[in-house]
Design a protein around this nucleic acid. Structure first.
Lengths: 206, 206
DNA sequence: AGGGTTCTATCACAGTCGTGATAAATAGAA
DNA sequence: TTCTATTTATCACGACTGTGATAGAACCCT
């Protein structure tokens, strides 16, 4: 007994198809027709759920950020109050949290790839500028808050400038993610983690 | 008395026009027609110097790398033997060398923007894969050699793992360049330099 | 069974793209 | 001047893009 399609589920399916196309062929080749094919839909059907390309892209990018945001919130809740853990454990939790932003498995690799294509496109595509900016600000806020917590619990060595360290760690994450996605043979998942661990270890009080 | 055009000069002009288009509108919109317009040429004329789009892109990217390579070589020659300088001076020279890779002025900002667009496109465009890989390897070699020199002159603190530090510094440079190009309001030129200086200072023997 | 909404499918249009082919204009040497 | 190579300019073709319009099928409710 067929029923009316759940529109939200359909939209999610389309977005998933869009992500697959972007990961495989790049944002440039993610045309409405290509996405429709990937989703197994007719283009007219797709356009029934997304009136325009702009609407699809906006919804897709927002979906990705929501998904990532939910994962981060879950991590933070799992960790609970940082002060309850011993020193080395605090660093480990910080690494695990930030590792959500690195392409360490296929899910995150797809996210970072889409994120990269989308962000570079946003440089010259005003329709993406707003979202791109918010994600950049959001990443900085996350990193800054984390470093602030570590500092407040005495996990970091004294004398660090929070602004500089925030930019440093954010840039490191961006760079690691970029290289791991573009050149996975040059920088594998474990190497990524090793660099991140090393960096936080460097920032820690010895 | 008009003369025959210097073909190499023309090709350089076209490449410059291509870079302007890419910086302004993105690699995606750098079509043959757009580049010809930007260069003040008819598309038929442009195609007389570049038989295909592929040939233009290959030549353009190689030109950019040659230009950057020449700047780096000049820096290295100016610095001479690192051992001749006192310790703090060595760090300053290292910062200046690596700063050639950061978008600190309009020339370098254009380079990094083109580099970013080109590299992300290379992820899903096999025709660019070779060049993208060589640049990634080249950057790592440069960073690694520099760190090796600093270590050999006793400028770095002991116990550092060269492989990890190479990836860390390379990722930092990539991330700084990316953010400075995509979000110049979040990360200005001086902030970029401050982070780089801070990082090398952290690596230095105190 | 009828009626109205939701969904799927198809056509057409104007725009862009890279490229092949070809012609016209120009420059320099004979 | 005449001849040849270089340079500039146009046209056409097939392929692709997003989108408007429209029609038909599938579905749920009365």
């Amino acid at each position: 007994m067929p029923k009316y399609v759940d529109p939200e589920a359909r939209r999610r399916d389309v977005v998933d198809a869009l992500f697959r196309v972007v990961v495989r062929d790049g944002l440039q080749r993610a045309s409405l027709r290509a996405v429709a094919d990937e989703a197994g839909l007719n283009i007219g059907s797709l356009r029934h759920y997304f009136a325009s390309q702009r609407e699809l892209m906006d919804f897709a990018m927002q979906s990705m950020l929501d998904r990532l945001g939910a994962r981060l919130v879950r991590r933070v809740e799992e960790a609970g109050d940082l002060g309850r853990h011993p020193g080395p454990e605090r660093l480990r939790l910080a690494v695990e949290l930030l590792a959500e932003l690195l392409p360490l498995d296929e899910v995150r690799r797809a996210e970072v790839a889409v994120f990269l294509d989308f962000n570079t496109a946003a440089r010259t595509s005003p329709e993406f500028a707003g979202l791109a900016r918010r994600t950049a600000v959001g990443a900085r806020e996350l990193v800054r808050r984390l470093l602030g917590r570590l500092e407040a619990t005495g996990t970091l060595r004294p004398g660090l400038d929070l602004d500089t360290e925030t930019e440093r760690l954010t840039a490191l994450l961006d760079g690691l993610g970029m290289t791991a996605v573009l050149h996975p043979d040059l920088l594998g998942a474990e190497a990524c983690l090793a660099v991140l661990r090393g960096h936080l270890g460097d920032l820690a009080a010895h």
